[in-house]
Amino acid sequence: MRDLLTLEGVHTHIAQYHILQGVDLTVPEGGVAVMLGRNGAGKTTTLRTIMGLWGASAGTIRFDGTDITRLDTPAIARLGIAYVPENMGIFTDLTVRENMILAATGGAMESARLDWIFALFPPLKTFWDKQAGNLSGGQKQMLSVARAVIEPRRLILIDEPTKGLAPAIIKSMTAALAELAKTDTTILLVEQNFAMARSLGQTVSVMDDGRIVHSGDMAALAADAGLQEKLMGLSLEAHQ
C-alpha cells in the first residue's frame, strides 16, 4: 500500500498551548487507519490540523504527495478530504434533505449516490424531510457521516463516531463504515471504542502527549495485551 497522507514533525499551538509536539503519522491508501490514545492526547487537534482548521506551526502535511500544510480548509476539501467532527456539525434547524443539499457540490445530489447512502443509513431516508434536530443521537451521527460522503472522497477524517451511542447503533455504524472502507475512500478514524477500532482498522497509531508513540498493524496490537497496557494503560479485551 502506498501512503496517501503523511505528517512529518507537525507542531500545533492553540493560543499559549503547545498541543501537537512533532507528530509523525502515515495513513496508507485504502481501508481504515485508526488513531488511539487517552483523552487530551491530541487526536482531535491532529484531525483539525490536517483539515486546516488549526494551522500547523511547524512540520509538513502531505496528501497524495501534495504539500497541504498551508492550504485553507476549502482548498483541502476540494482535494477530496472530508471531516466528521466529534460534535457532528449538522444544522439542527434544517431538515435531513437540506443538510445533505448544503453538503453537495452546487446543491446537486446524484440519485445513485443518494441510494447508496440510504443503503448505509436507512433512517435518513425515513426522516428525509424531518428537522435534523429531532433525530436521535445515532441518527444525527449517521447524517454527519452521510454529509461527508455525499460526494466521493479520497480521505475522510472521523472523530469518535460512536461516542454516547447505544450498542445497537454502534453495530450499525461499524457496519456502515466497513462498507465505506470497501470503496475508494480511505478512513482515518479516531475512536475510543476499542472493540470497534479493532474490527475496522488495518493499521493503528497511538498518540500520547501530542506525539505518536506507536504505529503498526492493528492485528499485532490487538494480540499483545502487554503492549496495550504499556501504551494506553488498559487492554482491548476489557472493551469487548
Rank of each mutant, 00 (worst) to 15 (best):
L234M: 13
E229G: 09
R62T: 15
G201N: 08
F91T: 02
V204M: 09
I170H: 06
D184L: 03
P85G: 07
Q21L: 00
Q16F: 09
G138V: 01
I68K: 03
Y83E: 03
L177R: 00
F118N: 11
L36Y: 03
T186Y: 03
L155Q: 01
L124N: 08
G201T: 07
L4G: 00
G201Y: 08
R211P: 02
A58P: 01
A197H: 11
G22S: 01
G30I: 00
I117E: 01
R198N: 14
T12V: 06
L227G: 05
R62C: 13
L53S: 02
D115H: 14
M109T: 12
A168Y: 11
G31A: 00
S57F: 02
M232E: 00
L165M: 13
Q202G: 15
K230H: 14
K43F: 02
D224C: 07
G201M: 06
L180C: 04
K163H: 13
R70V: 02
D184I: 01
M35W: 01
L180A: 01
Q240M: 15
A103E: 06
T162M: 08
V204F: 10
A222T: 03
L180R: 03
A108V: 14
V27R: 05
L221F: 04
V145H: 02
A223N: 10
T45M: 07
G107A: 07
I81T: 01
L124M: 08
G233A: 05
A132M: 06
T60M: 13
L236Y: 08
L180I: 14
H214L: 10
L165C: 11
F91I: 10
G55E: 12
N193H: 15
G164L: 08
A103P: 03
D129F: 13
L221M: 06
L124T: 06
L188H: 06
A225T: 04
R198F: 13
R78G: 09
V34F: 06
L124H: 10
L53M: 10
T12A: 07
H214D: 07
A175R: 05
D217K: 13
A166S: 08
M109I: 15
H13M: 04
K130F: 12
T126D: 08
A41S: 13
D208F: 02
D24K: 15
A15T: 07
E86S: 02
Y83F: 12
S172I: 08
I76W: 10
G31H: 03
M196W: 07
K43L: 01
G106E: 06
M196D: 09
T66G: 06
S215C: 09
Q240F: 15
L47R: 12
R62M: 09
N87P: 00
V27N: 05
G59D: 10
S172Q: 15
G164V: 08
I61K: 05
